[in-house]
């Protein structure tokens, strides 16, 4: 049986990881089309349009989505997915942090492209990424003091997925874990969720 969903996926891409993680946590099945962007254009899957880069989620060959935030919302609104992922009682807070998460994920992707796309032993300008992590740390410190464990709702939601990827993969960019103690404790909870998947090549230690 086919899932009706096809994900054009490039394994080492952080946005693709965010999508794989979100879909897995929500228990959404999909077919994968590997799209290695390091290969020449003619070796990439035919379904990918010129200029398009993964992640691309295709729904029954009709709707196509390329932004992780949109894909999270799409998945969370599927009838079979637990409502907590986009809890109606906390919808605006969830969507607000989801939007923040897409921005932070873009900052992470940009910093990683610069860091790993060069042979120079220098770190890229990390201003946007560091600012995002700090806002997340301040937010989760305050949440913990109010007795909350997740970003925007009483349970894990799509607001937690993208910030998790940002925090976990910033370790590669020498952001030290001890500067974000509240995020460390929350990330530990994320790793314990059913359906959690790791990013290949990145140790499970965030």
């Amino acid at each position: 049986m086919t899932s009706g969903l096809t994900l054009y996926d490039w394994t080492p891409d952080v946005r693709c990881y965010a999508v794989r993680l979100g879909l897995s946590l929500m228990g959404v099945a999909y077919d994968t089309q590997a799209a290695d962007m390091d290969l020449p254009t003619f070796q990439r899957p035919v379904g990918l349009r010129p200029g398009e880069r993964p992640p691309v989620l295709l729904v029954a060959g009709d709707v196509r989505m390329t932004r992780p935030g949109t894909i999270m919302q799409f998945a969370a609104r599927q009838p079979a997915v637990a409502r907590a992922w986009l809890d109606p009682a906390h919808e605006w807070a969830i969507l607000d942090w989801l939007d923040f998460g897409t921005m932070a994920l873009d900052a992470l992707a940009a910093a990683r492209d610069l860091a790993f796309g060069t042979t120079l032993p220098v770190l890229p300008p990390m201003g946007a990424l560091v600012a995002a992590l700090r806002r997340m740390e301040d937010h989760m410190s305050a949440r913990a003091m109010a007795g909350h464990e997740w970003f925007a709702a009483p349970a894990a939601s799509i607001a937690d997925v993208l910030p998790f990827v940002v925090f976990a993969l910033s370790a590669d960019l020498e952001v030290e874990r001890d500067t974000c103690p509240a995020l460390r404790r929350w990330a530990h909870r994320m790793r314990g969720l059913p359906g959690f998947v790791v990013m290949p090549g990145v140790p499970d230690y965030a």
Binding site: E176, R177, D178, P181, R184, R185, H188
Partner: peptide, 17 residues
Amino acid sequence: VSVLSNIRRGEVAGVRI
């Protein structure tokens, strides 16, 4: 090196000195 609320029972935390 840390507030104690960051290092509860069963937790591990790296710090630098």
